[in-house]
């Protein structure tokens, strides 16, 4: 019933990207998106199903210079429990804590969450406000080629990214935040677990003497991709986080998103929540 002809489980990155050269490959990691989507007929298997779980270069969470590198195969549970992440990236921990259910977190990987490119992908908003870069590997000729791309430019549409069929996401790199850095994440779902975001909000920046700088704000589930909220960032950059600034930023946030109506919420409610919860998060930052 499917075109699937070959199963391949490479044990090195070179093998994996070499296999990708032909482009006719479906990549399997945790399978928590691929399985339901293929069963529902939304995804058709390509000729080769490649299981990437046995590639050592794609696992682990490590400090590399001034960056934290999270391998694409790191599961949501691993990320949530890792000391480096817990110490430096609280917004990412918060997102992992609201990610699906324990069972899915144990299997689902961050690489999969990135490549699935859902506008409501739980880890994507914190990665955006943490200035993450996506590591890509490919084999244009005979040699392994690796490069990084800022995650803010990675998503091109719902389920669409700049990654070509010949490329593999091997990990994400996040700069270790400086002292005074604050970050927050909020997921608006109707229940504590097993929910798709109605909206999600990430806020980060350096807080000094009540002034927020190097501000990053990102929203999920309000557009075809998770996105950086540049107008909201401008409303906050370099300003004292007082009531007027916070309200102006919340209004800017509501005005710059253009969500849709769907089974989870109407556009109107999404805009209201962007306003109310951006405000609540900023008030929380101001009190920190």
């Amino acid at each position: 019933m499917t075109e699937l002809k070959r199963y391949y489980a490479p044990t090195s990155l070179d093998q994996a990207v070499e296999c990708l050269k032909g482009g006719n490959v479906t990549i399997l990691a945790g399978g928590t998106d691929l399985t339901p989507q293929s069963q529902a007929g939304r995804i058709k298997f390509r000729e080769t199903l490649m299981n990437i779980r046995h590639i050592p270069q794609m696992s682990g969470i490590t400090l590399e210079g001034k960056e934290i590198r999270i391998g694409a195969l790191a599961t949501i549970t691993e990320i949530m429990e890792h000391p480096l992440v817990r110490e430096h990236l609280p917004a990412l921990v918060e997102a992992c804590d609201h990610f699906a259910s324990d069972q899915i977190r144990n299997a689902g990987t961050i690489g999969g969450n990135i490549c699935n490119a859902s506008p409501a992908g739980d880890t994507l908003v914190p990665l955006l406000v943490l200035d993450a870069c996506v590591e890509l590997a490919s084999m244009p000729e005979t040699k392994l080629y690796r490069h990084c791309m800022p995650i803010s430019t990675f998503f091109t549409g719902s389920g669409k990214t700049r990654k070509s069929l010949c490329e593999l996401v091997t990990g994400v790199r996040i700069p270790v935040p400086a002292a005074g850095h604050v970050s927050r994440f909020y997921k608006h779902g109707t229940r504590p677990a097993l929910d798709i975001s109605t909206i999600s909000i990430g806020v980060a920046g350096n807080l000094k003497d009540g002034v927020l700088s190097n501000v990053r704000v990102a929203f999920g589930a309000v557009a075809p991709t998770p996105l950086r909220a540049t107008a909201t960032e401008s409303a906050l950059e370099g300003r004292h986080l007082d009531a007027a600034t916070i309200e102006a930023a919340a209004v800017a946030a509501r005005d710059e998103v253009n969500p849709i109506d769907d089974v989870r919420a109407t556009a109107w409610y999404r805009k209201e929540m962007i306003h109310n919860m951006t405000k609540r998060m900023l008030e929380n930052v101001a009190q920190a």
């Binding site: 229940r191 504590p192 677990a193 097993l194 929910d195 089974v263 989870r264």
Partner: peptide, 16 residues
């Protein structure tokens, strides 16, 4: 029917 699945048809879960 817009939501014939347990993702969008929300039964009460244990913590609720």
């Amino acid at each position: 029917m817009k939501n014939p699945n347990f993702r969008d048809y929300k039964l009460v879960t244990a913590p609720e």
